[in-house]
Amino acid sequence: MSIVNSEGPQTATPISSLPVTVMPRSVGYWQSVWQRLCKDKVSMICLISLILIICASFAAPLLTSYDPAIGSVIKRLKPVGTEGHILGTDELGRDMLTRLLYGGRTSLIMGFVPVFLALLIGGSLGTFAGFVGGRVNAIIMRTADVLFAFPSVLLAVAIAGALGAGVGNALVALTIVLVPPMIRITESATTQVRALDFVEAARASGAGNLTIIRVHVLGNILGPVLVYATSLLSVAIIMAAGLSFIGLGAKPPTAEWGLMLNTLRAAIYSQPLIAALPGVFIFIVSLSFNMLSDGLRSAMEVS
């Protein structure tokens, strides 16, 4: 509602002297995802507990003075809350808290490394297959399907069994198991992005395939792939613990959550709480990765 003043124009500010509002760069996609994730309480609780567990595991020597491999026969299976051993001791009298922290290192590494390797190998194969399409795509995807035909746990057990027990072999086995689903996810994301007009427009500007993948494809598939990788972390940690539990992963006296579950089995009636502790940690970490992946997915879906 502008009523023109009949007494002539007022001293209007000339447009040129108006302050120019320079818009800062808008909030980027990842920044906005992060902001939405921060508003999600469940995701934040998961993220904070994960960070705490990870930091505590890797700072274990600073947090405890015990050696994870040395126990005392007279202090076997002390209950939770014993003086000097907050979480009690295990069947060989080793401090549970120390073992859980050091065990976290092994378990987390056995979860992270295969997922990271699968992300690299499966991610690049999937992107390549999706981008090139045609026969190359068919070859890569059908090969992945062959690996898909085996139940993943069974395949991991079979490979680890064939290679022999040990953390390194378990890592190889887990990586092989996780690569096919990673290929499938990146392939389908890439195929979707590749069909969009901006990829065609980039090609019409004279961009080469590598530039198109780097600038236009990777940025757009990173979201779904990252969500999936986070959920794979929870699977990988459970499978790693499982391999150790059946003796195909870490070997005693290494502290590892799955292995600890196995060695404490005998104490399940005398000290059920202590026997369950490694399982509680596996549960918390795995569940947190799973919920975080869900939170990440919904934080990404908005725009």
Partner: peptide, 15 residues
């Protein structure tokens, strides 16, 4: 050069 029909699909949402 070409201008495409779908104005949103022809711009990379991450750029």
């Amino acid at each position: 050069q070409m201008v495409f029909q779908d104005s949103s699909a022809s711009l990379n949402p991450r750029l």
